[in-house]
């Protein structure tokens, strides 16, 4: 049974507010006293996902599900989708526009970083339709 689910909307190209959803999620997890190291892993994943949506994904949502045994992050956007998923998962591969790289983003570490930090990582994407990511963080050590 899901204990708590919360959905945050993320707007494409809105760099002013980029990262706010992740900060909110982080602060929720902080308020229930979750282990700081785990919060950091979840924070990084949320932030990378949020930035991906802001840069490529168009509008979308970042959701969190808090269960007694695990925490799940969902990314769901209606952006351009990813053509070659295998390539996109490689470190250093990036399709970010030059202007974003100049801002310090788009180093091609987003998806691989998420995969590295989550206990379970699944991604599905359709060109022209959007991308969905599910990341699970186990609370049982």
């Amino acid at each position: 049974m899901t204990d708590l689910k919360k959905i945050f909307h993320v707007k494409g190209n809105d760099f002013t507010h980029a990262g706010e959803a992740s900060v909110n999620i982080k602060n929720m997890l902080k308020s229930i006293g979750l282990d700081p190291k785990l919060i950091r892993r979840i924070g990084v994943c949320g932030y990378e996902g949020e930035m991906n949506m802001v840069m490529h994904g168009g509008d979308g949502t970042l959701s969190i599900e808090i269960n007694t045994d695990k925490i799940i992050l969902y990314l769901d956007d209606n952006g351009p989708g990813i053509e070659d998923l295998e390539l996109a998962m490689k470190e250093g591969y990036s399709t970010a526009k030059d202007e974003y790289r100049e801002m310090g983003f788009g180093a091609g570490m987003g998806l691989p970083n998420m995969k590295k930090n989550a206990d379970e990582f699944t991604i599905s994407s359709k060109v022209g339709r959007g991308t969905q990511v599910k990341m699970v963080f186990s609370l049982n050590h």
């Binding site: 708590l4 919360k6 229930i32 006293g33 808090i66 007694t68």
Partner: peptide, 13 residues
């Protein structure tokens, strides 16, 4: 600050 239980966080939301 004592952490909230998930139950209390849910009520708060």
């Amino acid at each position: 600050k004592d952490p909230l239980s998930i139950e209390l966080l849910k009520k708060m939301e």
